[in-house]
């Protein structure tokens, strides 16, 4: 069955303009679609080829290209084959259609991508915050968000020298770190301006 799986998919997609399909491995097929025809591709895969299981939706931030890549991983229990449908949407305004009406698991993945990348999915049932309930900054998984820089700018390094340690150090023991040797001073943080 393995070798034949790619062919019915390419026949299925023949009617969809701009969708290319390519076999990547024994049980892996890659489809390159466009934002306009992706809902049609997914509907064909689900309705005519038995791809019932939406395994995941992955978002990739291509900051230099000004685009987000969305990948829909679908699995067919009958063909035992995994199809990854790729599309690219503009980074601004970062809006796309929800596929919740086709695949219910999409609700969680779209909510997660909305929270982490700021992509808005029209028609998704719930785009409330889930993980970062108390976060008001930019979507953190975007490539232009510098997590380490944010930490350096938000929190202070504290010198941990309780009394018991100072007593030991006075006797010549312990691990005495002079202030100029402390990590925060010696370490240069890339991309962070004080």
């Amino acid at each position: 069955m393995n070798g034949e799986v790619g062919r019915p998919i390419s026949r299925l997609l023949a009617d969809v303009d701009g969708a290319r399909c390519e076999r990547k491995g024994d049980r892996r097929v890659r489809i390159d679609a466009t934002p306009e025809n992706l809902p049609a591709v997914l509907e064909l895969l689900k309705g005519r080829a038995g791809y019932l299981h939406l395994s995941a939706i992955t978002c990739i931030d291509w900051m230099d290209d000004g685009e987000f890549e969305l990948i829909y991983h679908l699995w067919s229990y009958e063909d035992r084959n995994l199809v990854s449908a790729h599309i690219r949407i503009p980074r601004e305004p970062g809006v796309y259609l929800s596929v919740y009406d086709l695949f219910e698991p999409a609700g969680f993945f779209e909510r997660d991508i909305h929270e982490m990348y700021g992509v808005f999915f029209e028609g998704s049932p719930d785009q409330e915050k889930f993980i970062l309930t108390e976060w008001n900054g930019p979507p953190p998984m975007r490539k232009d968000f510098d997590a380490e820089g944010w930490v350096q700018g938000t929190f202070q390094w504290e010198d941990y020298r309780p009394e018991w340690l100072q007593e030991i150090e006075e006797k010549g023991g312990g691990i005495a770190i002079k202030p100029e040797q402390a990590r925060a001073n010696t370490r240069k943080i890339r991309g962070w301006k004080q």
């Binding site: 395994s55 995941a56 992955t58 978002c59 991983h73 698991p105 609700g107 969680f108």
Partner: peptide
């Protein structure tokens, strides 16, 4: 990019 799809992402939420 590394995306982790844990099985509980479905089971524990929706």
């Amino acid at each position: 990019r590394v995306h982790v799809r844990g099985p509980s992402a479905m089971h524990a939420v929706q």
